[in-house]
Design a protein around this nucleic acid. Structure first.
Ligand SMILES: [Mn+2]
Ligand SMILES: [Mn+2]
Ligand SMILES: [Zn+2]
Ligand SMILES: [Zn+2]
Lengths: 139, 139
DNA sequence: AACTTAATGCATCATTGTTGCATTATCATT
DNA sequence: AATGATAATGCAACAATGATGCATTAAGTT
């Protein structure tokens, strides 16, 4: 996924393909795991803090990125999969945080987690898992 | 659960039973559902903001209350069940947020939600559900 | 009643979220 | 390629919450 890919993606979502947006998306893509807000900010010092805020908002709005909330209220951002678009975010995946390396990853599971709460209408289920990741377990 | 109950509870956890702490716990107890931080602050204007912050921290530390994080980074606080103590928080319950009345409730489910992530060590699973609560569905 | 120590209040700073407004850059149209 | 419409940006400004240091006060013990 290079700059041109994101440029086209932005256009397809009716967003202008500005340098900032492309830089941000390339950065997030290279980061591999979900990127903590603080790291994004450190890496994007060229753009104003408010612009970064609004950029993240609009990319989220258009289904290009999504936010993974963590305990202690830290926000992580990750690029959405192909199933997300302007109208719908589809995130039935799990967010896993390694307490050793602090990495947050999006985990697509084969098994479907079933939650029922009798009497209540369920619209959205988000699952946060904490533990030690494969890499850290090995060390 | 009256003031005396909380006074004893605080003592049993090696915390001084101050007026602020007892007031806070009685308040949270009467609130029934998990209480949003903003509401707690509004109700506890008699105590300094920093003291409230430190009070919530120490009550959490000692297993008397717990924090329910929500998307958009709002924090809700609820009194722990009998299973929590100074050394362990046991929260394998679900936090359900009604998008209609904004209420967050702790839901103890009979069914055990099973999550497996091959290769990773799982220490903690927290499940956040959004939807419409029983009361709001009826209206 | 006196003492010890935790708890509190106040000052202060940091981070993140959020809005308004003037300026600039992107993109479509000529 | 120049022009114009409009989205995107930068800057100022304010709010909410988290967090620490230090002097004062209150709780619990003797
Ligand atoms: Mn994700
Ligand atoms: Mn709970
Ligand atoms: Zn790890
Ligand atoms: Zn409701």
């Amino acid at each position: 996924m290079d700059a041109q890919y994101f440029k086209d993606l932005l256009h397809s979502r009716k967003l202008k393909a500005t340098g900032h947006r492309i830089n941000l998306l390339v950065l997030m893509d290279q980061y591999k795991s979900a990127m903590p807000y603080s790291s994004i900010q450190e890496a994007m010092t060229s753009m104003d803090r408010v612009t970064l805020y609004r950029t993240l908002e609009s990319l989220k709005e258009k289904g290009i990125i999504h936010k993974a909330f963590q305990e202690n209220n830290e926000s992580y951002y990750a690029i959405c999969g192909a199933e997300c678009d302007t109208h719908d975010h589809h995130h039935d995946h799990i967010h896993f945080k390694c307490t050793s390396c602090e990495t947050v990853t999006c985990q697509t599971t084969t098994q479907k987690v079933q939650v029922t709460l009798p009497g209540n209408e369920i619209h959205k289920v988000s699952i946060h898992v904490e533990g030690v990741c494969q890499t850290c377990v090995a060390n």
